[in-house]
């Protein structure tokens, strides 16, 4: 029995069932905790693929930062009562949307699985990465050599997001109810 395959089966089952639970749960709090489950299993899948830095970052950024933000907002809004919005839409709409989703899934799988023939192989094989000193060293070398400009641009994006969030938060305090 291949242990990595067993781990893949466990993590992918948790990921798919957890994401189904995210969209089917009635309260936002249970959706948020199902999402934490999905993020953890995705981190395991990244580790199985050899992307150890991404796996660590997934737990730090997603489960550590983004989910705390979500849970804080749920707490602030007091959204702990059960919602009925899944039952509100008609059965016909839900059936059509599910069928469309399955059709889209089959198209996606067709596109992904028929792209098997790969010409132009890159140089970063597993042996090369191990020789360079591990996944983190290889990534940082590529990031700060080839992608340094993009890295700086992303910092501007984060700055813009911070300014936008502060503007959204401040406006409510000074002029109450004038957003509409």
């Amino acid at each position: 029995m291949d242990w990595s395959f067993l781990a893949f089966i466990i993590f992918s089952t948790i990921a798919i069932l957890g994401s189904l639970m995210v969209i089917l749960q009635k309260t936002p709090v249970s959706s948020a905790f199902s999402l934490v489950l999905v993020f953890f299993s995705f981190s395991g899948l990244y580790a199985l693929l050899g992307a150890h830095f991404i796996a660590a970052l997934q737990i730090l950024v997603y489960t550590g930062a983004i989910m705390v933000l979500f849970v804080f907002v749920i707490m602030l809004l007091g959204q702990d009562e059960k919602t009925t919005d899944l039952k509100d839409s008609s059965l016909l709409f839900k059936g059509i949307a599910t069928l469309g989703g399955f059709g889209f899934l089959s198209i996606l799988l067709q596109a992904a699985l028929t792209s098997k023939d790969t010409t132009g192989k890159g140089i970063y094989t597993e042996e090369k990465i191990a020789e360079m000193g591990g996944n983190l060293k290889a990534i940082s070398e590529v990031l700060f050599r080839d992608y340094i400009f993009h890295f700086e641009l992303v910092s501007f994006l984060v700055l813009a997001a911070v300014v936008a969030t502060v503007a959204l938060a401040k406006r409510k305090n000074s002029q109450q109810g004038e957003i509409s």
């Binding site: 798919i16 994401s19 995210v22 969209i23 936002p28 949307a97 996606l108 799988l109």
Partner: peptide
Amino acid sequence: IVSCSVFVIGLLGVIFRKNLLI
């Protein structure tokens, strides 16, 4: 396959749910 399935589940969530947090 896992990636495509989770993507479609997320898409269905955006279509079905009306709660903005979800």
